[in-house]
Simulated scan of single mutants.
Amino acid sequence: MNSNNEQKSIRGKTVVITGGSSGVGRAAAEAFALEGCNIVVAARGKEALDETVALCRDLGVSAMAVPTDVSIAGDVQNLANKALQFNGRIDIWVNNAGVMSSGKFEEIPMDVNEQVIKTNLFGYMHGAYSVLPVFKKQNEGILINNVSIGGFMPAPYSAVYSSTKFGIRGMMECLHGEISDFPQIHICNLYPQIQRSTGNMHSAKYSGLDFKVPPFAADPRDTAAKMVELAKRPKKDLFWISIKSWGEKIKLITLLYA
C-alpha cells in the first residue's frame, strides 16, 4: 500500500459501517456524517439501526440501514449490493461488528465460542470478500478494520476472542500482498484500547467473573475520529491508546503486566 501524507477530503464518499447500531459503530457513523459522507449502517437490530440513520440524517447527509448478521456470508453480500444501489459505489468499508465472551476457556460453552469466531473473524472475512471485488472494479477504495489492541496483546480470560483478533491481523497481512498491484486500494488496521461501549459492558461472562470496563477505557467517539483519520490519510496500521493521566498509565501497566 502506498503511503500518502496528503490528507484527502472524504465529503460525498459512501461509507459502509458494520456494527453500526451502538458503541464505536454509531460513533463512526456520526463522525463520517459530520464529514459529509453518505452512510450505510449494518447490524442485526433494526430499531437501533434506525436511530443511527436518524442521527446521520439530522446532520444533513443521506443514510440507510441494512439489517445484517455479519456471521452470514449472504447477509454481508446483500449489504454490499444494497450499498452499491444506494449511491453507485462504495468508497470506504468499516469492519467493526464484534462480540466478546469472558471466562475460563473450558467453562465457556463451545457454541458461544463458535459465535464469537463467526461474528469477529468470519464477519471481517465476509466484509473483505464482498467489498474487495468492488474496490478492484473501481480501482480504489479503503477497507478499515477495527481490530483492537487484542490483535497484538491477549485479553485475559478471553482466549477465543483473542484468537479472532490475531486471526484478523494475520488475514489482513496476507491481503495487503494481494492488493499490491492496486495503489489506490488501502487496507487499514486500527488497534485501539478497550472501549467504553455497550459491547464491552454487555459481553457474555462465565466462570463467576464480572469484568468491569476500566476507567482508562477509550471514548468510542475518539476511536471513530481515528477511523476518519485513516479514511483521509490511509496507512497500514494505526495503534492508538488514549491515556490522559499518570494514574491511568499506572493502572494500564498494572493490568498488562500483572
Rank of each mutant, 00 (worst) to 15 (best):
I194K: 04
Y129I: 15
G208A: 03
G25C: 04
E229K: 08
F122G: 05
L252R: 06
P183C: 02
T119A: 00
T14H: 00
A63H: 08
D58T: 11
V116M: 04
A48G: 14
I108S: 02
G150Q: 06
F86D: 09
E51W: 10
H186E: 01
A31F: 06
G247W: 05
G25P: 01
P67A: 13
S21D: 03
E35N: 04
V40N: 01
V160T: 14
K118V: 09
S242R: 12
A258E: 09
S101I: 14
I10P: 07
A33M: 09
G12L: 11
S21K: 00
Q115A: 12
D50F: 13
M125S: 10
A31R: 09
A27H: 04
G167P: 03
S148E: 08
V61Y: 12
F32M: 03
Y191M: 00
E106I: 12
D50K: 10
G19N: 03
P67Q: 04
A65C: 04
V76W: 01
E248P: 12
R11K: 13
P183Q: 00
V94I: 08
G25T: 01
K104Y: 11
M100V: 15
V41K: 03
S242N: 12
G247H: 11
V24N: 06
A42G: 05
S207F: 10
L34R: 08
V228S: 01
S102M: 06
I241R: 12
F211E: 05
A225M: 13
A63S: 14
N38F: 05
E229F: 15
A29W: 03
C56P: 13
P220D: 02
E178T: 03
G19M: 04
L238Q: 03
V160W: 07
G88S: 14
A204I: 13
A225S: 15
G199R: 03
T18N: 00
I144C: 03
R196K: 13
G23M: 01
K104H: 15
K235L: 04
Q85Y: 06
S180N: 08
F239P: 07
L132E: 11
S207Q: 05
G123E: 08
I10M: 03
I179G: 05
D58F: 07
A73K: 07
L34G: 06
A28I: 06
A83I: 07
G167F: 02
R169F: 13
A258M: 09
V16S: 01
P133E: 04
Q193V: 12
V116Y: 07
